[in-house]
Simulated assay, not measured.
Amino acid sequence: MGNQSSAVVVEKRIKEIGKNFFNIRASFKIKGLINIGTHMSLIRLSNGKYLVIDTVPLDEELKKEIDELTNNGVDIEAVVATHPFHTLAFPDFYKNYSSASYYGTPRHIRNQKDIPWAGNIMDHLNKWSPDVEMRIPAGAEFVAPVPESTNHFNSVWVFSPVAKTIHVDDTINYFDNPSLLFKVLGKKSGQMDFHPSMTNGGLNKTETAPQLFKEWLENLLHDWDFDNACCAHVGVKIGGAHALVNETLTNAQGVLDKLAKKHEGKEEEHTHH
């Protein structure tokens, strides 16, 4: 009995968010100090295999959990990169799970030559439908966003209809339990925002980009019936996520109007979408 009372319940790192949809939260520190968090998701496909969305640094405990879920990685069908700048964990993940097919953003494919990429994710957005749907926001650069240090707005949005869950990297941020720093910056628990780079090059500097993005997101909200949103920074919104994304878009209307006015007369040059 004595042994039992001292047993420590270790909380699982892999959390089931919805049916066949698992999310892992991990630490990611800016300049080694400010933890803004990062994440990856695993979606069990109807064939029983797993689609891995993004990667996070592996430690022994996390690798063990992934191995248990995926039959030591044998059941990982593919690994998808959704964000041009979420790159650091991919090489190590590939070393551990090299039998899967890897699909990168154009920037991954340019910069990480050690991974034998199976393709550019832009060409494979429908590869796993209807189990998984993917879309890339309009009105924003995806192939080569600049400046690289700050323009982290655009990323592939991933939707699992059966789990009613979306996985999004930087385009939207959700603060489930803001740290002291975020509270100082005015973030409240339960708040959702667009990535701050939206107003500083995240959306293309053209008159039409804000409207293109707004229409893209309105169409997505019309087509995707989701309840939960797993966001790279800073948390997961369980339940009510659809209404909150809609509200976030409504609240941004003034900002979008200002951007359109600021870039009046400038036309779209990008035809990537």
Score class of each variant (00 low, 15 high):
Ala140Trp: 01
Leu69Arg: 00
Asn111Arg: 05
Asn151Ile: 14
His108Asn: 15
Pro147Ile: 12
Asn72Gln: 14
Phe93Leu: 06
Ala138Thr: 07
Tyr102His: 02
Ser129Val: 11
Asn120Ser: 09
Pro145Arg: 03
Phe90Trp: 11
Asn71Trp: 00
Glu133Lys: 09
Gln112His: 06
Pro106Asn: 08
Met134Ser: 01
Ile115Ser: 04
Val143Asp: 13
Leu88Lys: 08
Tyr97Phe: 15
Gly73Val: 11
Asn71Leu: 06
Asn126Ala: 13
Ser129Pro: 11
Arg107Gln: 15
Val74Glu: 15
Gly104Met: 03
Asn120Gln: 03
Met134Gln: 02
Ile136Ser: 02
Phe90His: 13
Pro91Phe: 05
His108Val: 13
Glu77His: 03
Ile66Asn: 00
Ser149Trp: 07
Glu141Phe: 00
Phe90Arg: 01
Trp117Glu: 06
Pro116Phe: 08
Ser129His: 10
Lys127Asn: 11
Asn111Ala: 06
Lys113Val: 15
Gln112Thr: 14
Thr70Lys: 04
Ile115Tyr: 09
Ala89Thr: 13
Phe90Glu: 06
Pro137Gln: 02
Phe85Trp: 13
Tyr102Glu: 02
Glu77Pro: 04
Met134Cys: 10
Ser129Glu: 15
Pro130Gln: 04
Gly73Trp: 05
Arg107Ala: 12
Arg107His: 10
Trp128Leu: 11
His83Cys: 11
Gly104Pro: 08
Ser98Asp: 13
Phe90Pro: 08
Asp75Thr: 00
Phe93Lys: 00
Lys113Ala: 15
Asn126Met: 08
Tyr94Phe: 15
Pro130Met: 07
Asp131Ser: 05
Pro145His: 03
Val143Phe: 08
Val146His: 01
Pro84Lys: 00
Val74Tyr: 12
Leu88Asp: 15
Phe142Gln: 02
Leu88His: 10
Thr70Phe: 05
Ala89His: 05
Ala118Ile: 09
Glu133Ile: 08
Ala144Pro: 01
